[in-house]
Amino acid sequence: MAGDLLDNQGRGDVRWSFPPIHPEGRKFGLIAVVISLGFLFGLDWEIVGWPLLLLSAGVFAFFRDPERVVPQDDRVIVAPADGLVTLIKQVEPPKELMIDDGTEHSGLQPGPVTRISIFMSVFDVHINRAPVAGTIRRVIYIPGSFVDAGLDKASEENERQHILIERMDGLKIGFTQIAGLVARRIVPFVKPGDTVGVGQRVGLIRFGSRVDVYLPAGTDSKVMLGQRIIAGETVLAEIGTQKLIEGVAQ
Rank of each mutant, 00 (worst) to 15 (best):
R68S: 01
R11G: 07
K153I: 15
A133E: 09
D194A: 12
F175P: 13
I245Y: 10
K153S: 15
I35W: 12
D82F: 06
R167H: 03
Q72H: 03
P188E: 08
I165R: 01
I186T: 05
L84M: 13
L236Q: 08
M168A: 14
K153D: 15
K95F: 13
V59D: 13
A133R: 13
L54H: 03
P93S: 08
V48F: 14
A79H: 08
P23S: 12
R115Q: 11
H22C: 08
K89G: 13
R129H: 12
I229H: 12
F60A: 02
G10L: 04
P93R: 03
P188Q: 10
E166S: 08
E92I: 00
P94N: 06
T219Q: 05
F62T: 04
A2K: 09
L151R: 14
R185Y: 11
V182T: 03
H105I: 04
P23M: 07
R129E: 10
V211D: 00
D101M: 02
V14Y: 12
T135Y: 03
E92T: 03
D152Y: 03
D65G: 01
L171S: 08
D124A: 12
F62M: 14
R75W: 01
V59A: 14
P131F: 02
R167T: 02
P192W: 10
P112H: 12
A154C: 07
F119N: 06
G3W: 02
D148C: 07
A32H: 04
S36V: 08
D124L: 07
V223C: 07
W45Q: 15
R228Q: 11
R11T: 01
L171F: 07
D74R: 10
V211F: 02
I178L: 12
R160C: 07
V248H: 15
D101W: 06
L108R: 02
